[in-house]
Simulated scan of single mutants.
Amino acid sequence: MTSPLPPSAGTPTGTSSATETGLPRHVAIIMDGNNRWAKARGLSGVRGHHAGVEAVRATIRRAAERGVGVLTLFAFSSENWKRPKAEVSALMELFLLALKREVNKLHANGIRLTVIGDRSGFSEAIQAHIARAEAKTRDNTRLHLVIAANYGGQWDLAQAARRLGERVAAGELATDAIDEAALASELNLAGVAPVDLCIRTSGEQRISNFVLWELAYAELHFTQRLWPDFDADAFDAALEDFRRRKRRFGMTDDQIDEAQGA
């Protein structure tokens, strides 16, 4: 598990020069396959998660080098608490260790860190380190790193709807004022550019309750590589796949070609 960077209110973050070269502003990754990687080598699942940390470092480094604006990593889902207690405990220790060891490196490299998800499920120590990491890196602009931990897309949408309902009940918001923009403003990634490219490793082809709202028009890239084997070359391959796509957003090819030629 690793760390991300917080959105600023108002203008979406992640509007870097990456879009000028046909690259995604916002890349989201479902990091899958740590346990299978370890099992294939006769190792414990925990060893697989430790190997996955190296892939996280390599991916953050490459995203920053390529000019991606926002990188969101799915580190721990709200469903992952169902895993064996020993594995969950090891993951929490690894998360805390990463927060202690990696934040200074992120800060030195101009990377902003934000953690999204239900923090109440974490220990007080982890919550405190998350707050310190976000505060320390808040003004960095090279890359916005978002870590989704104890996160679920359905939970995110439900809590956003609840907050809007509370505002309506308090007389602060009219029901006919609730639209897509109002709901988006209450989500964990409010103010962050939508996901352009979602990568999933390990050969699985599903989005597993990840950032559901933000994936509405994302391009999907699936790779057979297990997460610990994902490296800079694999990230570059995903970016190149994205550059070959024609994103229509409901329009026709002719409309897209006309807009691009304008």
Results as ranks from 00 to 15, higher is better:
Leu73Asp: 00
Ala218Lys: 01
Ala108Thr: 13
Asn209Ile: 04
Asp253Gly: 06
Val27Thr: 08
Phe76His: 02
Leu145Trp: 05
Ser44Arg: 14
Thr114Ser: 13
Val88Ser: 06
His144Glu: 11
Arg57Asn: 12
Ala58His: 06
Leu187Val: 00
Trp81Gln: 09
Glu166Pro: 01
Ala133Ile: 01
Asp156Thr: 02
Thr21Gln: 14
Thr19Ala: 14
Gln224Ile: 01
Leu145Ile: 06
Ala9Pro: 13
Leu197Arg: 01
Gln154His: 13
Gly203Trp: 09
Asp257Tyr: 11
Ile116Ala: 03
Ile199Trp: 02
Leu5Ala: 14
Asn109Ile: 08
Ser123Trp: 01
Glu54Arg: 13
Phe76Cys: 01
Asp236Met: 04
Ser208Phe: 04
Asp253His: 13
Thr201Trp: 07
Gly10Arg: 06
Arg25Trp: 12
Arg83Cys: 09
Ser78Ala: 14
Trp155Asp: 15
Met92Gln: 06
Lys39Ile: 07
Thr114Glu: 11
Cys198Thr: 14
Arg142Met: 11
Leu71Asp: 04
Leu91Gly: 11
Arg142Tyr: 03
Arg61Phe: 13
Glu219Cys: 07
Ala177Phe: 08
Ala218Ser: 12
Asp231Leu: 11
Leu215Ser: 01
Asn140Leu: 07
Glu20Asn: 12
Ser78Leu: 10
Gly67Trp: 07
Ala40Arg: 11
Val211Arg: 00
Asn35Val: 09
Met1Tyr: 11
Val211His: 01
Leu189Asp: 02
Gly52Trp: 14
Leu145Tyr: 07
Gln205Tyr: 06
Arg66Ala: 15
Pro24Gln: 11
Arg101Asp: 15
Leu113Trp: 10
Ala160Gln: 09
Ala177Tyr: 07
Ala40Leu: 10
Ala86Leu: 10
Arg47Trp: 04
Gly171His: 03
Phe122Trp: 09
